[in-house]
Design a protein around this nucleic acid. Sequence first.
DNA 1: CGGGACGTTGAATTTCGTCAAGGATGGTGG
DNA 2: CCACCATCCTTGACGAAATTCAACGTCCCG
Lengths: 233, 233
Amino acid sequence: MIPIQIDSAWKGTSDCRNCGIRDMVLFADLNEQDFGEIHTPIDDMVFAVDSVLYNEGQTALGVFTLRKGMVKLVRATADGRERIVRVLRPGDVLGLEALATERYDTEAMALTEASVCRIPLAVLHHLSATSPRLHKRLMQKWQQALKDADDWLADLNFGSARQRVASLALKMRDPEQPHMTSFFARDDMGAMLDIKLETVSREISSLVRDGALKPCDKQGRRYEILNEAMLLR
Amino acid sequence: MIPIQIDSAWKGTSDCRNCGIRDMVLFADLNEQDFGEIHTPIDDMVFAVDSVLYNEGQTALGVFTLRKGMVKLVRATADGRERIVRVLRPGDVLGLEALATERYDTEAMALTEASVCRIPLAVLHHLSATSPRLHKRLMQKWQQALKDADDWLADLNFGSARQRVASLALKMRDPEQPHMTSFFARDDMGAMLDIKLETVSREISSLVRDGALKPCDKQGRRYEILNEAMLLR
DNA sequence: CGGGACGTTGAATTTCGTCAAGGATGGTGG
DNA sequence: CCACCATCCTTGACGAAATTCAACGTCCCG
């Protein structure tokens, strides 16, 4: 079942030298010699909405770089419910933990259609030993992942329901259009913020009523930020 | 001011080869040759309760390994309150992020008297390039830190106040005496679980009344776990 | 022995969750 | 092309849970 997903997602082999977002990713400052050390092809893949990139505990095939779209990392909690521990966006790395354990610690599911490249573990193990440039980038990606994890905890799971929704709105701002922000299905937002979906809906409505946000589509996914100060509190 | 803390904490130079907890720490599988590459002394330090090991944003001097005691990682939130993002225990590494950014991402404060060794950044940068053994350990410590961060979020900040207190009790079990567990000042516990200190107190009292826990001191810090199943739900 | 810090407990209030119903949207098939 | 249906978002009323404000007790330290 998983191989089928992989097959259907596979779109070809990546040409990393000419990657459009290369300055954001792991291979940012590799030189020609480093690229020569890559003996296994990097797969270029696209996953449809709601498809699973990998499961919690699954044996790892590689580390992913997210090129386009959004991916949620999901964990099962002790009582069986579902918890979204983070949302990744373009430039982020998925499955770094596989470098240490050969297994993925969380499930990864596409929140939108998602383009990724999958870098085989062997390539990273080899390069991290031979290329100080990759080694340094790898440290930076670990550090960023850890900081993101702590940020997520400190910002989004703190305070009243209204504060949480407002924090999520700020965190999910579009990097290119800072006055726009993206929301998700209400039950996903609930799993991110640890509040019920009805409460999410109420707080969004309240922020719209108070003039902090303006809905830009009919599905409740895109909003314009009208009053940033109101969200910051 | 910070140098004064450092001076007062300094207890000598560590003999890593004979470290009592070496199998848990970064230097676990270094060989004699690797040790020969260490040209800067590892400092052995002790911090008193409530003293600060480093501040958020501070320029980093090194990475710490916790030998004894407990340390909290604290962040300021958007609204100025204090948020405890994790508690570290013996064997854990503090300040790994300094390897990537030369700065600490959080404040670290001793929850008990804490013994640490401070490994200069230069030593780690050098060894991670020359010793595949350290390189591998480093990956494992990054992975563990990231998993701990996600665990903290998923377990302790989820569900009712009672569930959170129960999860904390389980997470803070003594590794040597699994039926014993450690709590903290009630406002610290509140900052860990994102509930008010009065609620923490009430839930602890309730767990004691229901026979899940038994207090073992008069300050409310040590408890015996009488009914593990009751805490798991 | 007194005072301050901290933990506990109680009552009133606010917030959030639960249960239920209604409405908009998008897709499907006739 | 439109009616129908399923899905998801929204809203309301009620009850449960957590916070707030306050008082009180205990422990530790000077």
